[in-house]
Amino acid sequence: MDALTWDNACSAITNMPKQACYMRFRSITPLLLLCQAALADAPTQTARADAHAPIGVMADHLHHGDEWMVGYRFMRNYQDALRDGTNHVSKQRAYSRLSSGGYGYHNAPTRMAMNMHMLEAMYGWSDRVTLMLMANYMDMNMDAELHPHGPAAPVPYRMDSSGWGDVELAALFDAGRTAHGRWVGKLGLSLPTGSITKKDDMPHGVLGALVPMRMEYTMQLGSGTYDLRPAMTYSEQRDGWSWGAQASAVLRLGENRQDYRLGHRGELTAWAARLWTPAASTSLRLVGSRWGNIHGRDDAIDPDMSPAADPDAQGGERVEVGLGANLYAPSGALKGQRLALEFLTPVYQDLDGPQLANEWTLNVGWQFAF
């Protein structure tokens, strides 16, 4: 609106003389210009620690054209104690007979730990499109007890599984800008490179002899299917603060060669970060996830042996809270490198059980952009 138009409107509404309206317009002009500048589109600042989301969030940012980023992420997940719905279940009830109020399984998992090493590479195809490749190596172990449903005492044993998991290819794209932030979309495809036929020795032979058997679904390294992995992320930066939110999903395409597919998965997460210096920030994150049971079954995995082998005891939903920190080198010999960590713990779990409940997850990552 120009000065003359503003003067006429001001005079008509307020009954003030046009000269008084003109002087009032001149007095607020600098403020109007400042607001216009603040609301104008501005690129996200990358030379600050909170330019990336907490390390537990992926596919949240883009890179400039011809820019590379390589990284390594380590995730440690620990599960302990069984749960059905929101209630804890004892291992004794898991392998007690149905007639005595138990679940009737022969085994009861007691704990599980997973270490995942992820290698990632990102390349800026242009300022608006970034390509991403992720590969992971997993090392898992599960403690369980075998109950013969007789007078003999339960037999504790451990299963171990390790190897390369599924590989993901993805394209990230600029989905829009706001005054202080941006939308980033993701179209990803997971390739079934991880094994779904891993075996280990278990005490299921005569008189508890160890025999090689296919391990439960949670101990396999991949899904066995091609999986779509779409996501949409919004992040915004202000002076000393940043925040963001992401919606993501894992959609299984068909069944694998063992005649089953894992359940679809959806996740919503939001975070806020405090920038203490350009090189350091801390974050608070909330994560809500939901995943389905297995459709079909692997004939080599007896669903009566263990809750972890039961296709109908794999789904659930969970809410977690995470605390994180990002460190970034804006200059010097380490320029462009980031080190980040995040610790998450659940505040709510509702599981189709009995199923091992999540206790905590630790994410650590290093990234280098050049």
Results as ranks from 00 to 15, higher is better:
Leu4Gly: 08
Ala9Gly: 03
Ala12Gln: 14
Lys18Trp: 00
Tyr22Ile: 00
Leu31Gly: 03
Ala40Pro: 04
Gln45Ile: 11
Asp50Phe: 04
Trp68Ala: 09
Val70Gly: 13
Gln79Met: 15
Ala81Lys: 12
Val89Gln: 09
Gln92Lys: 10
Gly102Ile: 09
Gly104Arg: 05
Thr110Phe: 02
Met112Gln: 12
Met114Gly: 11
Met114Arg: 02
His117Ala: 08
Leu119Thr: 01
Arg128Glu: 15
Met140Gln: 12
Glu145Cys: 02
His149Leu: 08
Met159Leu: 13
Asp160Arg: 12
Ser162Trp: 03
Gly165Gln: 10
Asp174Gly: 01
Ala175Leu: 11
Gly176Pro: 01
Lys186Gln: 14
Leu189Trp: 02
Leu189His: 09
Leu191Gly: 09
Thr193Ile: 06
Ile196Asn: 06
Lys199His: 13
Asp201Gln: 08
Gly205Glu: 10
Met213Pro: 01
Met213Cys: 04
Met215Arg: 00
Met219Phe: 03
Gln220Tyr: 03
Arg229Gln: 12
Thr233Ala: 11
Gly244Ile: 01
Ala245Trp: 05
Leu251Tyr: 07
Glu255His: 13
Asn256Cys: 08
Gln258Tyr: 10
Thr269Pro: 00
Trp276Arg: 11
Pro278Asp: 15
Ser289Val: 04
Asn293Ser: 07
Asn293Cys: 06
His295Gln: 15
Arg297Leu: 05
Ile301Ser: 00
Asp302Glu: 02
Met305Cys: 01
Met305Trp: 01
Pro307Ala: 07
Ala309Arg: 03
Arg318Asn: 14
Val321His: 08
Ala325Trp: 08
Asn326Arg: 10
Leu327Asp: 07
Leu327Ser: 12
Ala329Arg: 06
Ala333Ile: 06
Arg338Gly: 13
Leu339His: 06
Leu344Pro: 01
Thr345Asp: 07
Pro346Cys: 07
Glu359Asp: 15
Gln367Phe: 08
Phe370His: 13
